[in-house]
């Protein structure tokens, strides 16, 4: 479906159809509140409790601090992984023998859950930011490497031949054919990888550091079963994850990169 058709459809939707999802969410929240108020001895808070908890976090200034801490780790881990993995993956993918050599190794490292690296991270970097950044780096490095390798593979031979035909130097070839041809796939890969990074940071913060949203959740539970804070933390994690995903998706719509998404 083209964008125009979609736009037409969404414009033609009546107000009541648009309200339906919101009504559904409200109904779920109401049910949740009722269920909680029927069992007052329950540890789980209702939606109102969660909102109060969010307000409390904001008042103590903890929320911005923890959000910044988590985002800081994700940014560094992801950026380091991208800077190393993308050029390496493109090179490995380009040379067939290189790929034969490294592919089995990459395949073994990739399914090792980044969290399994926690002991090693703590051994090398101690408890703290570098440790969490290392875990996110490990979690992002292998998916990005594989994306870059397969992106090179999927360049249609025609483009490579045209590049050779017009007598480009190697640098020109990389900049003017290879790079634009792989960018769309790299963006998709980065979006998925960023999702993994967001998953890993929460887990890493539960175990390896003393700040951040993951720490908020585990600490709220351990220190006095404050489940309202736990759920508030989850809501924040979900919201930020959604925003990250939306941000990456809007990159996919940049005109220059869009060519491969307009299915032909």
């Amino acid at each position: 479906m083209t964008a125009i058709e979609q736009e037409k459809r969404s414009r033609s939707l009546s107000l009541s159809t648009r309200l339906r999802p919101i009504a559904f969410i409200v109904a779920l929240l109401v049910l949740w509140q009722i269920a909680v108020s029927r069992h007052p001895d329950q540890l789980l808070p209702g939606p109102l409790g969660v909102i109060r908890a969010l307000a409390e976090l904001l008042r103590h200034g903890l929320l911005p601090k923890y959000v910044v801490a988590s985002l800081f780790r994700v940014t560094w881990g992801f950026a380091l992984a991208a800077v190393l993995a993308v050029p390496l993956g493109l090179t490995i993918g380009w040379y067939r023998r290189c790929e034969m050599a490294f592919n089995p190794l990459v395949q073994i490292f990739r399914p090792i859950s980044p969290l399994a690296w926690i002991p090693i991270a703590i051994l090398w970097f101690g408890v703290g930011d570098p440790s969490a950044i290392f875990l996110i780096f490990v979690g992002c490095f292998f998916p990005l490497l594989l994306t870059a390798m397969s992106a090179v593979h999927n360049i249609p031979a025609v483009y490579i031949n045209v590049g050779r035909n017009f007598g480009l130097s190697t640098a020109q070839f990389v900049y003017r054919v290879l790079y634009p041809a792989v960018v769309p796939q790299l963006i998709i890969g980065s979006r998925i990888t960023l999702g993994i990074a967001w998953l890993v940071v929460v887990a890493a913060e539960m175990i390896a550091v003393n700040s951040g949203l993951g720490f908020l959740i585990i600490d709220a539970r351990n220190a006095g079963n404050r489940y309202d804070l736990v759920i508030a933390g989850m809501v924040i994690i979900g919201t930020i994850g959604l925003l990250l995903d939306l941000g990456m998706r809007s990159l996919e719509r940049v005109k220059l990169f869009r060519w491969s998404y307009s299915g032909d």
Binding site: F24, L44, V202, R221, Y227, L242
Partner: peptide, 25 residues
């Protein structure tokens, strides 16, 4: 899909790890 999708989109990015305390309750 129109009705359920927003709920899924909100729940999806919550890291499964973050559910650990809830899972334990």
């Amino acid at each position: 899909n129109q009705v359920l999708n927003p709920v899924l989109q909100i729940l999806r990015p919550i890291s499964p790890i973050a559910w650990i305390p809830v899972a334990i309750i």
